[in-house]
Amino acid sequence: MFDYTFQWRQAIRALPQMLDGALVTMQIAVLSMAIGVTIAVFLAVARNSSSRWLRAPATAWVEVARNTPALFQIYMAHFGLGSFGIYLSPYIALLAGIAFNNAGYLCETFRGALRAIPATQIRAGRSLGMGPAKAFRLIVMPQMFRISFLPTMNQAVWAILMTSLGVTVGMNSDLTGVTQDLNARTFRTFEFFAMAAVIYYLIAKAVMLGARLIAWRMFRY
């Protein structure tokens, strides 16, 4: 039934190029997680605050991030901002879109973790002379990160998979972008993208395995 010969050698020859792309993919994923986690902490605090002026914008961020497609969020950064004369490069637009998305989802992850930390922990910190910010930073935050560690790493895998969307806004240096370039030159779509799929799969598995190992080694209490 196949009137087609698979040409894997060509794809394997392109492997170094694709691995370079995978590095860019990892770079965007790591940056988007770093930005996302940082913003998510602030969003979580804001959503739990008693001030409506802090709560409302944080809630809006979270709901938009969770109720619209990630691709839409990337389009907003890339095309939407053009209306204001702001033109973000594909790299920055992709990074911004994923970081926005990460922050929204991680905020809810962190809030769930915060609910699991007894209020008496803060009280204990305050009674030792810590201010509210210090008690949050030294006592609540470390526990929050530990409780939400595995869900956070799940989000990291999501971030890696989301980087593939960059190709739709013209990104050509990440794994999907490089693969698409090779595809456009050779029309060996299946072979190249099958290779890309394997690489994504291995990265995702490696990250989850690493996360499990870290969780097992570090969080022994």
Partner: peptide, 20 residues
């Protein structure tokens, strides 16, 4: 208060150990 509380130690019914 943060300064004053250094003078006054308190121990609660719940142990409130910092688990991390």
């Amino acid at each position: 208060l943060n300064k004053l509380r250094r003078k006054i130690g308190i121990v609660f019914q719940q142990f409130n150990a910092f688990p991390h």
